[in-house]
Design a protein around this nucleic acid. Structure first.
Lengths: 337, 337
DNA sequence: ATGAAAGCGCTAACAT
DNA sequence: ATGTTAGCGCTTTCAT
C-alpha cells in the first residue's frame, strides 16, 4: 500500500502520466507501454488510491444512505436493492442506521458532506428543523426513498393514499363492516398521514362510520402492532378486520390475536402493507398491499445518479405501482358466510 | 462546497494553519482567533474535506463490511450493532452485501483497498482461493465476525461445536430419541461443519445411533429449512424433534410442519440457532440456541480498532458465550408424557 | 504517443 | 501563539 504511481512509473521506465493513462484506460498509449505498466503493477502489487483520485477529480463515487431501521425486512430489502444498483454503476455505499435518532441523522448528513459523497438517499419519514435546514442548504443531490417527506426533493414512493384506500376497500368488499386501522406515526406528513387518510376515505365511501376506538397508531414495528391490537381488543365492540400500515405491525397484530385465542382469518381478517418477505413467512400467510420494493430501491438510485450527472433538475415525484397480494389472512366476516 | 480552508483563513484574516488548528481542536490558538475562525466558518458555510484530510493523514476512518445477506435478521442485527459501535468511535461504514456472490466479494475487497479503508469486517463463511490470496496479501487489518473462516485471522464467534452439542442434548434430555438435523453448508469449514459435528457428538453421547435420513443440509435461509424439513417428512420413519442450524431454517421447518398438518411442539419439537428476533415472532415462539448478537458486533469492531492501532498483533480467536433460550417450540415426545 | 509540472484541500514540520 | 511551506497520490493541461 505504500507503493504509489511514481514507483510503478519508475519500475516500468515510463512517466507517471503514462501509468495514469493505462490505469484509466485512455487512448494514446502504445501497446508496449501498456504491457510494461501492467507488469509493473502486478509485480509491485500496486493499488491506486481512491482518495487521491477523488481529491483530484472532485468526485468520490460514494453514496450516503440514511435508513431508519436496518433490521426491518422492508428496509433491508430496499437497501439490498440499492446496494446492488449502486454497485452496478461503480458507486459505493456509506450506510447510516439511525434507529429513529434524529440527532444521529443530522450528524451523519454532515459527515456525508465532509466525505463529499456524490449523493444521498434518505429512507426515513421524520425530519426536524435542523435537518430540513441542512437539506435545503447543501448542494449534494438528495432523494427520498419510500418516504416522500418534502416536495422540495425528488422522491420515489407508492401512492400511499390510494394504496391504503384500496386495502381498506378490499376488506369492505369482503363484507366487513367493522374495520380497524393500525397506522404509522401521524407525525410523518408523508406515508403515515396519507395511509390514514386513505383508510378514512375508504371507510366513508364504503358507507361505514368512523369508529375512533378502532383507530390506533404505532411505529411500524412488530411490537407496536401487537400492542395496538391488544388495545383494540380490550375496548368494547370488536372489529372483524384490521388493516395495519406495515407488514411488521400486521404480524404483531396476528401474534396478539393468536395469544388472545382468536383465529385468523376465521374470527378476524388481517391485511398488511409493504409486501415484505414476512408475508410468506407467517401462518396464515399475510395478505398485504404490496410495494414494488426492489423497484423502489433501483429507481431511487437511478434517479439520484441522473441528478448527480445533471444537477439542476427540478424535484420530481416518482410514483410506483402498488398491488394487492391476496394470501390467507383475510376472508368474509363470520356472519356472512 | 467550493469553499476551502484558504477562504476561511482569508475571511478570518489568519493563516490556514490557524484554521486547521481550530478545526482540529488543537492547543496554541488564542480565544480570539478561534472565535474569528468559527465565525468565518459559519458565514461561509465551510465543511472541511474528509478526502483531503485522509490523503494527508493516511487514515480514512472508514471500515469496510462484507455481509453475506443483509436481509437476514441475524446479519442485519449484527450489522446494526457494528454500525453503532463504529459510529461511537467516529468511523464510518462502507457496506457490501454479497448475496453469496464470491466474485462480488473479491471485487469489493479490492475496492476497499483502493478506498484505503482502515479495517475490514467479514461476516461470511465461504472464501475461495482468490479471496484467500487477497486476505493474506493485504496489510489492512481484518476480522471475521460470527464466521471463523480462517485461523490466520482474528475472529469472534460462539463455540459452534459446543452450542450445537448443547442444543442437541437439550432435545435428548427432553426424552427425544429421534432427533433430526438441518445444517448449514458443509463447505464452510467453520460454523457449518462445527455445528454438524456438535450434533453428531451429542447424538452418540446420548446413546442414539446416527440416522442419515434425518440429516439434511440447507443454506441457513428460511426456504431451505422448509425444503429440508419436507424431505425429512417424506422419508420413512419420522423424527420427533428437529434441530436447525439457524433460526431462519427453523422457521422454514415450522412452516413446513404447519403446512403438512403437524403441530409444534405437540407432534414435533423444533429448536433453532442464533436467537434472532425471529424467535419471538413465530407462533409457537421458537426455542433457540442464542448467540450474543449485539456483543459479537461490538466486540468485532473493538478488536478491529485495536488491530488498527496496533497492527502487528497475532490473530486471536474470541469466543463469546452461547445460551439456550427456552420458548414454546420444544417439549417431551408424545409417548413420554 | 509521451512526459513535466501544476494543483486538488488539507496537515504538520519548521520557522518565527 | 501564529505563519510559511512542503508534500499526501493522483489527474490533467500543456509541451514536445
Amino acid at each position: 500500500m505504500d507503493i504509489k504511481i511514481k514507483d510503478v512509473a519508475k519500475a516500468a521506465g515510463v512517466s507517471v502520466t503514462s501509468v495514469s493513462r493505462v490505469l484509466n484506460g485512455e487512448q494514446y498509449v502504445s501497446a508496449e507501454i501498456k504491457q510494461r505498466v501492467n507488469e509493473a503493477i502486478n509485480e509491485l502489487g500496486y493499488t491506486p488510491s481512491h482518495i487521491a483520485r477523488s481529491l483530484k477529480r472532485k468526485k468520490t463515487n460514494l453514496i450516503g444512505v440514511i435508513v431508519s431501521n436496518i433490521t426491518s425486512n422492508f428496509f433491508s430489502t430496499i437497501l439490498s436493492s440499492i446496494e446492488e444498483t449502486v454497485d452496478q454503476h461503480h458507486y459505493n455505499l456509506l450506510v447510516c442506521n439511525i434507529m429513529e435518532n434524529l440527532d444521529k441523522e443530522l450528524r451523519y448528513l454532515q459527515t456525508f458532506q465532509e466525505m463529499r459523497v456524490d449523493g444521498i438517499i434518505i429512507m426515513h419519514e421524520k425530519v426536524n428543523d435542523d435537518i430540513r435546514r441542512f437539506l435545503h442548504q447543501t448542494k449534494i443531490p438528495i432523494i427520498f426513498c419510500a418516504s416522500p417527506v418534502d416536495p422540495a426533493f425528488p422522491r420515489v414512493t407508492v401512492d400511499d393514499f390510494s394504496a391504503a384506500y384500496d386495502a381498506t376497500r378490499f376488506l369492505g368488499d369482503l363484507g366487513h363492516q367493522r374495520i380497524a386501522f393500525i397506522g404509522g406515526d401521524l407525525e410523518d406528513v408523508s406515508s403515515g398521514r396519507k395511509r390514514y387518510e386513505g383508510y378514512l376515505k375508504a371507510i366513508s365511501d364504503i358507507g361505514l362510520t368512523i369508529e375512533p376506538r378502532w383507530i390506533k397508531f404505532g411505529d411500524y414495528q412488530v411490537k407496536s402492532g401487537y400492542e395496538q391490537m391488544k388495545a383494540i381488543l380490550q375496548e368494547g365492540p370488536r372489529p372483524t378486520a384490521v388493516f395495519a400500515a406495515s407488514d411488521d405491525m400486521a404480524l404483531g397484530a396476528m401474534n396478539c390475536l393468536h395469544d388472545c385465542g382468536f383465529h385468523v382469518p376465521e374470527q378476524m381478517s388481517v391485511i398488511g402493507f409493504d409486501g415484505s418477505e414476512l408475508t410468506e413467512l407467517t401462518r396464515p400467510r399475510l395478505t398485504s398491499m404490496q410495494q414494488p420494493i426492489a423497484m423502489i430501491g433501483r429507481l431511487s438510485v437511478e434517479l439520484l445518479l441522473e441528478a448527480i450527472q445533471n444537477p439542476d433538475q427540478s424535484a420530481t415525484l416518482t410514483t410506483v405501482p402498488h398491488q394487492l397480494v391476496i394470501r390467507d389472512s383475510c376472508r368474509a366476516p363470520a356472519g356472512l358466510v
